[in-house]
Design a protein around this nucleic acid. Structure first.
Length: 194
DNA sequence: TGCCTGATTGCCT
DNA sequence: GGCAATCAGGCAA
């Protein structure tokens, strides 16, 4: 496994959001290792993006967004779900990428057990679902995604620019029109087919 | 298939 | 006090 270098995350946020497609999210736990191929991402920009948690500046909740690029920002939403983001750009800027869907690669039976679902398509096709399937908890908030047990690595298959689709972001009520959602067009593991 | 709703809680205004 | 980067299930067509 070749873990993505710190320099990868210091690029422009939209560039990283595209480049993350096709990479592998790996979680090594005592109960087993789970791996998912990232097939859908959304970019959340800094203080000019109304839909971003960083829009009103740093608060207790979003502080990790303003921290080190390549670290995780995990937040609690709707009273029952967690979502995981990857911090990008530079420290202090407050930009991050929401991981919205994965194609299960390894540890599928463990994912099925955690999710109480058998259909492989439904295991990780949403931000809340993939966090559950991968066994990620709020303890990983601020974790460096270049370190075990939770990290992002290159896959042997490279995604071509032509395979990437763009759309508006899902589930937000502000800055609705910005084309900041990226996904692998022919993947059946994305959260929404538009 | 697709729209609508309830569940449930931490955080910001 | 109200809302939120969600999800699953129910009901209508």
């Amino acid at each position: 496994m070749e873990i993505l270098p710190a320099s990868f995350y210091r690029q422009d946020t939209k560039t990283v959001a595209r480049a993350l497609l096709g990479t592998l999210l790996v979680h090594e736990k005592a109960e087993g290792t789970t791996i998912g191929r990232i097939v859908e991402t959304e970019a959340y920009l800094g203080i000019n993006d109304e839909a971003s948690h960083a829009y009103r500046g740093m608060t207790r909740r979003n502080a990790p967004m303003f921290g080190n690029p390549g670290h995780a920002y995990i937040y609690f939403i709707y009273g029952m779900y967690y979502c995981i983001n990857v911090v990008t750009a530079q420290s202090g800027v407050g930009e991050a990428i929401l991981l919205r869907a994965l194609q299960p690669v390894e540890g599928i039976s463990l994912m099925e057990k955690r999710r109480q679902v058998l259909d492989p398509v439904k295991l990780c096709n949403g931000p809340g679902k993939l966090v559950l399937a991968m066994g990620i908890t709020k303890d990983a908030n601020g974790h460096n995604l270049r370190q075990k047990p939770l990290y992002i690595a290159k896959d042997k298959y490279k995604v071509d620019e032509k395979e990437i689709g763009t759309s508006t972001r899902v589930g937000i009520t502000k800055a609705v029109l910005l084309p900041l959602r990226f996904y692998i067009k022919d993947s059946s593991y994305v959260s929404k087919h538009v």
